[in-house]
């Protein structure tokens, strides 16, 4: 199961309001009409950690396989996208040229 804290992008010490804000932000980003599965996952995650008691309960008794998707999302979206240099592009193009199978003329 995906860790709801990861999914909503909040720390384990967050309060109700922070979690609510994170939830609203996520459902704005993944509206149900375009991303039904993501939306459902976010709603489920929110219901699991909505209150202090629920959060404590989750931390006490939740165990098992964590979902890695939010971790990956965090890892990739945290960084700004890179921009290759001219020389890098030339290098990759050269490698591609050598490994390509030239067909016909």
């Amino acid at each position: 199961m995906t860790d709801p804290f990861f999914l909503l992008g909040v720390s384990r010490e967050s309060d109700d309001e922070t979690i609510r804000k994170a939830y609203l932000e996520k459902i704005r980003r993944w509206p149900p009409e375009h991303y039904p599965e993501r939306f459902q996952a976010v709603a489920q995650a929110y219901s699991m950690i909505q209150t202090g008691k629920k959060r404590l309960s989750f931390q006490l008794f939740h165990h098992g396989l964590p979902g890695l998707d939010p971790l990956i999302d965090t890892l990739f979206s945290r960084n700004t996208r890179g921009r290759p240099t001219q020389n890098e592009l030339k290098g990759w193009l050269k490698e591609s040229l050598i490994s390509c199978n030239m067909k016909g003329r």
Partner: peptide, 18 residues
């Protein structure tokens, strides 16, 4: 293809080890 792994990593700003 292995030569262009670097391009994907560069665009994503992560290193190949990650």
């Amino acid at each position: 293809a292995s030569p262009v792994h670097g391009l994907a990593c560069r665009l994503l700003n992560v290193n190949a080890g990650t």
